[in-house]
């Protein structure tokens, strides 16, 4: 079921070590942003106890320190391993499956913003069923459209919770 045959070379591998390091760096970055962002609100103490930035500042600092701890652990663990052996985080086949699932999902979110959630749902189901599920177009259209209508009735009519709508609903006067 890989959707991107040949796009990823067969030897493609993300090692666990690389991922550990990358994640630790990202979390350390978030920590730094939080700590720096808190400086604006005062990180000291005044008459009313700690100022607004006190808590977030130290939280940011803790994130940075703990991320560095994770980084150190990852490096020590890597050194302790035998030369040449490596732990795999993601191989080509797995990456293909994740992308085949993840990319249409991202496309769905973009479509939702442009076309509203119901239309995007119908298109998303249709697309995935035809391309990945190898269904016939009319089957996919029926399932996609049916699901969108089902959700519309469930949320707009039964629960009366308005969901993001787009040009089609406006044209049909369904606001």
């Amino acid at each position: 079921m890989p959707m991107f045959p040949g796009r990823l070379p067969a030897g493609f591998v993300i090692t666990r070590f690389a991922m550990e390091v990358a994640t630790a760096l990202v979390t350390a970055g978030i920590g730094a942003v939080v700590a720096l962002g808190s400086l604006e609100y005062g990180t000291g103490w005044d008459d009313a106890g700690p100022q607004a930035g006190y808590f977030p500042f130290y939280i940011g600092l803790f994130i940075v320190l703990a991320s560095l701890g994770t980084l150190t652990q990852a490096v020590l663990h890597q050194r302790g391993r035998q030369r040449g052996s490596r732990e795999v985080f993601l191989n080509a086949e797995q990456a293909g499956r994740v992308l085949a699932f993840g990319l249409p999902m991202v496309a769905f979110v973009v479509a939702t913003v442009l076309l509203g959630l119901y239309v995007a749902t119908a298109l998303y189901l249709f697309g995935v069923m035809v391309v990945q599920g190898k269904y016939r177009a009319w089957q996919a259209a029926a399932v996609g459209g049916g699901t969108a209508v089902f959700f519309f009735v469930l949320f707009e009519i039964w629960f009366q919770v308005p969901i993001l709508k787009g040009p089609l609903e406006a044209w049909l006067g369904l606001h």
Partner: peptide
């Protein structure tokens, strides 16, 4: 290929609500 996208849609509707 049917149930997966439906779960995704439910998650995003949930986030939107």
């Amino acid at each position: 290929s049917i149930i997966g996208p439906v779960i995704v849609v439910v998650c995003f509707i949930g986030a939107y609500t």
